[in-house]
Amino acid sequence: MFSEFDEARLDDPDVLAAHDEQLRYLAMAGARIRSEALDVRVPVDLTMTPRGVIVAGAEARLIRAVLEPVCPVPLIAWPLQGLPGWVGPLDLVVVLASEPGAYAGAELVATVAEATRRGSQVMLAAPDNTPVAEMASARAIRVLTRTADPTAAAVAVLARLHEAGLGPVVTTESAAEAADMVAEASSPHRDFSSNPAKDLACGLADADPLLWGGSVLAARASRRLAEAIRAASGRHALSAGVGEIMEVLSHAKPRDTFADPFTDGEERRSVLVILDDEQADEASARAGDALRDAAVAAGVRVCELSAGQGSEIDRYITLLMQGLYGAVYLEIGLEG
């Protein structure tokens, strides 16, 4: 049985005050991006254009998703301890270790140690005076992190990689402003009529979400949102491609409006959540339209998040933050 969702809790000052820490953390996302970007003004000095780029640590796949379309050299997101056997002095190893568990973890310490031993150029995002920082050589490019926010650290690293000629333009202030705009629109002080995050929570109130992103970065945001929804509600949340979601929708049964929930039991319903990257290609736009049509035909509710304008990372942050706010409001509504 689902927990009963009480939408009145989302506008109750006392209830919202009890969740001030969660909501304040989301509201400070822009400030954390600005904090992590303080060292971006220091020029990046690569000894040469690397043969390849290997990215390890938190948000490594986000870095890969942003760089892959434009990076002039091969790159991989490496999920294991150490490095691939072919990595050597001609390569750049990027390690993101901004979270407390990450910068003390044996895996990333071993990765930095191995990169240093092989003579690779290292870019390290981590706080000072930590085990992983101590393992880096003096010639490593340091991105000093302060907030333990992996997304904020990733934005700072992307800005440095752009300076090195390896990625697209990433303006840290623009990314921070994108987070600020979502925080303003999703503020607990805004009611349902003008709060997209509270509206999303209501859309998720009685259903298991199927999440789809309309671009590579929107798909990554959808996976992050699925994790947040599972943590907030304990429900199933599937982030998948068009084919998998179409398969689920094809088996959706129409709701019986005459069913008695006390005698017939409560049937789990689905809700389709589309993370719409408005600047995605035509094929993605067609896929989104097909999903909407299939959901309508199956009697499945559709909720949409819009990425708006800006760079790829701005749009990613906009989608992610809207979803994270929605997940917190879902948790608040289910606690009654």
Rank of each mutant, 00 (worst) to 15 (best):
residue 74 P to V: 02
residue 20 D to E: 14
residue 77 A to Q: 06
residue 114 E to L: 12
residue 168 P to G: 12
residue 110 A to V: 09
residue 176 A to Y: 13
residue 201 A to P: 04
residue 139 R to M: 14
residue 159 A to W: 03
residue 167 G to F: 02
residue 167 G to D: 03
residue 228 A to R: 10
residue 127 P to Q: 06
residue 88 G to W: 05
residue 73 V to Y: 02
residue 335 E to G: 04
residue 75 L to H: 03
residue 91 D to S: 06
residue 274 I to V: 15
residue 335 E to L: 09
residue 323 G to C: 04
residue 58 A to P: 07
residue 187 S to E: 00
residue 146 R to A: 02
residue 45 D to G: 09
residue 118 R to N: 01
residue 11 D to W: 00
residue 27 A to M: 03
residue 335 E to W: 06
residue 52 G to I: 00
residue 89 P to Q: 02
residue 204 L to P: 09
residue 320 L to Y: 08
residue 111 T to V: 12
residue 127 P to T: 01
residue 1 M to P: 10
residue 325 Y to C: 02
residue 220 R to A: 13
residue 291 L to F: 07
residue 244 E to D: 10
residue 239 S to Q: 10
residue 242 V to M: 01
residue 326 G to F: 12
residue 7 E to W: 14
residue 254 P to T: 09
residue 88 G to N: 10
residue 218 A to M: 11
residue 66 V to D: 05
residue 272 L to C: 07
residue 209 P to I: 03
residue 53 V to A: 02
residue 336 G to P: 12
residue 186 S to F: 00
residue 324 L to Y: 07
residue 288 G to L: 08
residue 62 L to I: 12
residue 149 D to M: 05
residue 179 A to P: 13
residue 264 D to K: 13
residue 313 I to Q: 07
residue 189 H to M: 12
residue 295 A to R: 13
residue 38 L to T: 15
residue 268 R to L: 11
residue 58 A to T: 08
residue 153 A to D: 10
residue 128 D to L: 09
residue 327 A to H: 07
residue 233 S to D: 03
residue 245 I to S: 05
residue 117 R to Y: 04
residue 157 V to F: 01
residue 324 L to A: 01
residue 320 L to K: 09
residue 271 V to L: 01
residue 37 A to W: 01
residue 266 E to A: 06
residue 296 V to T: 11
residue 275 L to W: 08
residue 201 A to W: 01
residue 191 D to T: 12
residue 257 T to V: 13
residue 111 T to S: 06
residue 67 L to G: 05
residue 187 S to M: 07
residue 146 R to H: 08
residue 110 A to P: 11
residue 191 D to K: 13
residue 165 G to S: 08
residue 237 A to E: 03
residue 24 R to S: 15
residue 113 A to C: 05
residue 116 T to I: 00
residue 315 R to G: 03
residue 12 D to V: 00
residue 146 R to S: 02
residue 90 L to A: 14
residue 321 M to H: 14
residue 243 G to V: 08
residue 8 A to K: 04
residue 159 A to M: 05
residue 121 Q to E: 12
residue 225 L to I: 15
residue 287 A to T: 10
residue 248 V to R: 14
residue 54 I to E: 02
residue 12 D to I: 01
residue 97 A to H: 02
residue 24 R to W: 04
residue 82 G to R: 04
residue 71 C to P: 14
residue 282 E to M: 11
residue 38 L to H: 11
residue 276 D to S: 10
residue 11 D to M: 05
residue 29 A to V: 15
residue 49 T to K: 05
residue 142 R to P: 00
residue 279 Q to M: 15
residue 232 A to E: 09
residue 88 G to R: 11
residue 312 E to N: 11
residue 327 A to Q: 09
residue 28 M to E: 14
residue 283 A to R: 12
residue 254 P to A: 13
residue 233 S to I: 14
residue 198 K to Q: 11
residue 27 A to C: 05
residue 78 W to I: 04
residue 242 V to Y: 00
residue 125 A to F: 10
residue 203 G to D: 03
residue 267 E to F: 15
residue 165 G to F: 03
residue 168 P to C: 09
residue 39 D to H: 14
residue 30 G to I: 06
residue 309 Q to V: 13
residue 112 V to D: 05
residue 133 A to M: 07
residue 73 V to T: 03
residue 259 A to E: 11
residue 261 P to M: 08
residue 94 V to C: 12
residue 226 A to R: 08
residue 225 L to G: 07
residue 320 L to V: 10
residue 40 V to N: 09
residue 166 L to G: 06
residue 298 A to D: 11
residue 118 R to T: 12
residue 65 A to D: 06
residue 204 L to M: 09
